[in-house]
Each structure stands twice: as C-alpha cells, then as structure tokens.
C-alpha cells in the first residue's frame, strides 16, 4: 500500500512516465482516494510551470551591445 509520504518520493518518476506499471497503478489509486496527494501533485506541476515562465533577466546593456556588434560584423565579414 502506497503511503502519502511514499507518493511524494515517486512524483517525479510519475511525471516522467517512468513508474513500472504496478507502481503506476498504486500511484493512481492513491491519487483517486487522497485529495491531499492530488494537491501535492498539483503543487509540483505549478512549481514546474512557474520555473518555465521566469521573466527574462535584463542583460547588462554593454554586453548586449557588444554581442550585437559582433553579430553584425559576422554578417558583413
């Protein structure tokens, strides 16, 4: 029987599609019965989604301009 604690250690394998079938089945059954673990899985998905949408960090303009200059030079070379 998969515990809540056990489930939190299998979340990544689950999301990566790497759980062996029987493990996957007990994971699914546990999720079906346990709203806290559904909440946990959701938090993990939200964490991943947040990381995927981090705003771009402004680059120091001097470096950016220098790279752009090199990019242009490369074209005209």
């Amino acid at each position: 029987m998969l515990t809540c604690q056990g489930l939190t250690e299998l979340v990544t394998d689950y999301l990566e599609g790497r759980l062996p079938f029987t493990r996957w089945l007990s994971f699914q059954m546990h999720l079906g019965m346990c709203r806290h673990c559904r909440g946990y899985l959701r938090q993990m998905k939200v964490t991943v989604a947040t990381l995927g949408h981090l705003p771009p960090e402004p680059m120091p303009p001097a470096i950016r301009d220098e790279l752009l200059r090199r990019f242009k030079d490369m074209r005209s070379a």
């Binding site: 515990t3 809540c4 604690q5 056990g6 806290h36 909440g39 946990y40 959701r42 938090q43």
Partner: peptide
C-alpha cells in the same frame, strides 16, 4: 507515523 499527511499541502 503511518505515512499519511498530518500537515497536508494547501490546495493551490
């Protein structure tokens, strides 16, 4: 002790 949540995560 039985591995179930005692302080479960918040629902986001």
């Amino acid at each position: 002790a039985n591995g179930m949540w005692s302080r479960p995560p918040e629902a986001w």
